[in-house]
Computed example of a mutant assay.
Amino acid sequence: MSHETETPPDPKRTLTELELAGERLPDWRMLIDRLHASFDTADFVAAVRLVDAIALAAEEMDHHPDLDLAYGRLDVRLISHDVGGVTSRDVALARTISKLARAAGVTPHPERTSVLELGLDTADEAEIRPFWAALLDYDTIEAWGEIQIRDATGRRPTIWFQPTQAHDVPRQRWHLDLRIPPEVVEDRIAAAVQAGGELVDDTHAPAFWVLVDPQGNRACLTTWQGRESP
Rank of each mutant, 00 (worst) to 15 (best):
56 L>F: 09
42 A>H: 09
227 R>H: 05
6 E>M: 07
209 W>R: 04
144 W>H: 14
101 A>W: 10
100 L>F: 03
113 T>K: 10
145 G>Y: 15
202 D>G: 03
76 V>T: 12
70 A>T: 12
181 P>V: 01
89 R>I: 01
96 T>V: 10
88 S>D: 15
207 A>H: 05
81 H>V: 03
13 R>F: 02
166 A>V: 09
177 D>C: 02
138 Y>L: 03
12 K>V: 05
128 I>A: 06
91 V>M: 07
51 V>Y: 14
11 P>Q: 04
91 V>Q: 10
75 D>I: 00
146 E>K: 15
207 A>P: 03
101 A>L: 05
183 E>P: 04
164 T>A: 11
170 P>F: 04
156 R>T: 11
95 R>W: 02
192 A>G: 07
197 G>Q: 04
155 R>F: 08
208 F>Q: 02
99 K>F: 02
150 R>H: 15
113 T>R: 13
28 W>N: 09
7 T>N: 06
123 A>E: 12
131 F>M: 01
32 I>N: 12
31 L>H: 15
49 R>H: 13
85 G>N: 13
58 A>H: 05
85 G>I: 08
189 I>Y: 04
11 P>Y: 07
177 D>A: 06
27 D>E: 12
63 H>Y: 07
200 V>G: 10
203 T>W: 01
42 A>I: 08
221 L>W: 00
13 R>C: 03
97 I>N: 03
131 F>K: 01
108 P>D: 12
168 D>W: 00
218 R>D: 05
218 R>N: 11
90 D>Y: 07
133 A>G: 11
155 R>G: 14
68 D>S: 15
157 P>I: 01
141 I>R: 12
16 T>M: 08
17 E>M: 08
49 R>P: 03
20 L>W: 10
172 Q>T: 08
119 G>D: 13
69 L>S: 09
58 A>V: 07
179 R>I: 00
77 R>I: 00
57 A>H: 07
195 A>E: 08
213 D>I: 10
223 T>D: 00
101 A>E: 10
16 T>A: 14
61 M>L: 12
40 D>Y: 14
55 A>T: 13
13 R>Q: 10
65 P>N: 00
37 A>P: 02
202 D>H: 04
184 V>Q: 07
131 F>Y: 10
12 K>F: 12
90 D>E: 11
224 W>A: 05
178 L>I: 00
53 A>Y: 11
204 H>T: 05
63 H>A: 02
139 D>T: 12
51 V>A: 09
81 H>R: 15
186 E>G: 06
178 L>A: 00
74 L>E: 04
38 S>K: 10
57 A>M: 06
125 E>G: 07
11 P>A: 02
128 I>F: 00
16 T>R: 04
166 A>R: 12
41 T>C: 14
98 S>W: 02
143 A>S: 15
159 I>T: 08
105 G>N: 05
100 L>R: 07
203 T>K: 08
50 L>H: 11
119 G>F: 13
31 L>E: 11
8 P>G: 00
52 D>S: 13
9 P>R: 06
41 T>S: 13
165 Q>F: 06
112 R>M: 02
177 D>M: 03
212 V>S: 14
215 Q>H: 13
